[in-house]
Simulated assay, not measured.
Amino acid sequence: MDDITIRNMVTSDLDAVMQVEHASFQSPWKKENFIFDLTENFYSYYLVAVKAGEIIGYCGIWIVYDAAQITNIAVHPEERGNHYGDRLFEAALALVKLKEAETLTLEVRESNIVAQELYKKFGLEVVGKRERYYQDFEDALVMWVKL
């Protein structure tokens, strides 16, 4: 497995992050959403995964008091299958624990079995469903873990 570094995201990372975002999601976030989270939302934290100087993945987290939520996480499709998602998720978990969050939650597409299996490896369980959650009306599974 090639070595990656995981570090805090900065605004100068956004062009590369947007490439990952657009390659990964049917309904990508707008750049303005990331800018707001990085510059104005004091509840948000973002990490990037860097391989050979290039951003190959990222993870967004909101931490409000003792509750953390993964807002988005992605690894570029060309880099999937190398356990980079595992390492990014591990780093996110370490961050939320450092910030003393007691729970972690996220939504995942019902069809995204690969992501669900990743989250289950880290102890998350399906606790609910948000019907027609995504713009294409696919349901989201709500996953949760007590830290």
Rank of each mutant, 00 (worst) to 15 (best):
G60S: 01
A91S: 15
A49V: 00
Y45A: 00
V50M: 04
S24F: 09
Y65D: 03
A49T: 02
T5G: 06
T11W: 06
Y133H: 14
N72V: 03
A140N: 11
F42T: 15
A74T: 05
R7W: 03
L106D: 03
N82P: 00
L88Y: 07
A67T: 10
N41G: 00
I73P: 02
L141A: 04
I113S: 06
V20N: 13
G81F: 00
E138G: 07
Y58D: 01
E117V: 01
T103R: 13
E125T: 15
S44K: 07
T71V: 06
S44E: 01
E117Y: 02
L118C: 08
H76S: 02
A16C: 05
K31E: 11
V142Y: 04
Y46V: 01
A94S: 11
G123I: 12
A52D: 14
E90F: 14
K99H: 14
V75M: 04
E78M: 03
Y119M: 11
L124S: 04
L141M: 10
T71I: 11
G81Q: 08
T71A: 10
E90P: 05
Y43H: 14
A115Y: 06
M18A: 13
N82M: 02
M1R: 11
I6P: 01
I4R: 04
E110L: 05
A92I: 02
L124D: 03
Y119G: 08
V127T: 15
E125M: 15
K97V: 09
V75I: 09
I55A: 03
P28D: 03
E100N: 14
K97M: 10
E21G: 13
Q135V: 10
I35A: 05
F34K: 02
V20M: 13
A16Y: 11
Y43S: 04
K31R: 15
E54G: 05
E138C: 08
L47Y: 02
L47D: 00
F89I: 03
I6F: 02
